[in-house]
Amino acid sequence: MEKLITNIKPPSGLSIGLKELWQYRELFYFFTWRDIKVKYKQTYLGILWALLQPLGMMLIFTFLFSKTWKIDSGPIAYPIFVLSGLICWNLFSSSVSHAGESMIQNAHIIKKIYFPRLIIPCSAMLVALFDFLIAFIIFMVLCPVLKQPYDWTAIIYFPAGILLSLLAAAGLGFFLAALNVKFRDFRYALPFLLQVLFFASQVIYPLQSVQQSFYKYLLALNPMNAAIELFRAPLSPVSPDMRIVAIGVTSALLLFVIGLFYFRKTEAYFADLA
């Protein structure tokens, strides 16, 4: 049998360590499986919660902003408009908050056993993705029910929106996960940060309704605007604003690279700090 040879050295240099992540893919699977399983254990409604939450929010927002304040959502019916934004936003925000908390929650394991630490925030994000997929299926079913068609470009735009949400969430999530180990302050800052980002994302209002283009493109730095823009594209005859998308993709990539490298740079010392 081929022997595994490990050379243990002081940390130096930076690499993503994809090969090692692949070696540990089963552990990755088990962490995700554990989190999904635990999340809905001892709940009466089980995974129905993944549906009730966005649907409930959809009803509230529709009542508030469509019926009361009359926000113009363009060619998309407001309930679908807000639901499409909400499920993307939920994917992003629960990915970020699960990933951000994940290292502290698993500190007891980190201090005892070695494995690539990146598995922990990644599997926390997969749990959010699992919830998203359930909500997404209902969304696809609900569109025809509410007489909102989507065209064939959905095959490209839906995955593009989802991937961009995940990319941005991973960047921010890795960064916060690593910071949280060292500075517990970020635990308390995170809900506030997410709240701010929520209002800076075009969930309840269309970004195109922002009149001054300076503010519009400033808001586009929030990658979730681009993600929702892409995700909504198949629902509307108007094609997505590619400038918003380009700005969002760039900032998501930047966020991802910074988050990943900060995580990789500090992970060796997690066990000493946690």
Binding site: K3, L4, I5, T6, N7, I8, K9, P10, P11, I110, K111, K112, I113, Y114, A268, Y269, A271, D272
Partner: peptide, 23 residues
């Protein structure tokens, strides 16, 4: 260090084989 939970500051260790730790 041998189980790779924490990195060394100096030197190195070469480990041949899969390590199981009952820490």
């Amino acid at each position: 260090i041998i189980s790779r939970i924490t990195p060394p500051t100096t030197g190195n260790a070469i480990v041949r084989g899969r390590v199981g730790s009952l820490l």
